[in-house]
Amino acid sequence: MDEVRLIEIKEDILSDNKDLAAKIREQLKNSHTYLLNLMASPGAGKTSLIMKTIEQLRGHYRIGVIEADIDSMVDAEKVAAMGVKAVQLRTGGFCHLDAAMVSTGLAAFDLNAFDLIIIENVGNLVCPAEFDTGAIHNAMILSVPEGDDKPLKYPLMFSVSNVLVVNKIDYMGLSDFNMAVLKERVKRINPAMAIFEVSSKTGEGIKAWADWLDTQVSAFLK
């Protein structure tokens, strides 16, 4: 019988996903398509924000949406009703999207005919943070009713996202949410993070957010 020996491996478990994500970014560069990965907990307002963003930017860009849901098509139908191409990925119980699933979603688009594609990731602040989707930027929503302590509880999500949209600011008076405390907590994990305060319901702040995204997309498409 052979002796037991120690075999060095030194491999990152998520390296396949990282490689595929890099390939997706290469593909997007060639087709001139900006991909945004939008993450948030369930009910934070991902679909509403996407719809408001489409209203703001549909005059400038050809927009598509990839909707991820564990097992429904409700969100994709809402977006499609606006006349925007929406592809539904049923994750079949998976709690996040990975690069392979996003690649499948992108295959449903003629990428040369789209400038901006928004991924609505699965509603969850934990798992989506661990998987690179191949997007150019990661955005996250935190809604006021969820509380200003979320950067303490989900630091990874706050550290991998480039931009934070604080939604439902129309609830500010009804909650003990402290915006200054939130911002300070965010800066301690991710000093470069851009922060926008919006209400998808009243429309407040939506333009500033859409302008930021507009700037990112046009810089990428140049």
Partner: peptide, 10 residues
């Protein structure tokens, strides 16, 4: 990170 360092095998 998720890193596989090594394995013991025969």
């Amino acid at each position: 990170e998720y890193f596989i360092k090594s394995m013991e095998a025969q």
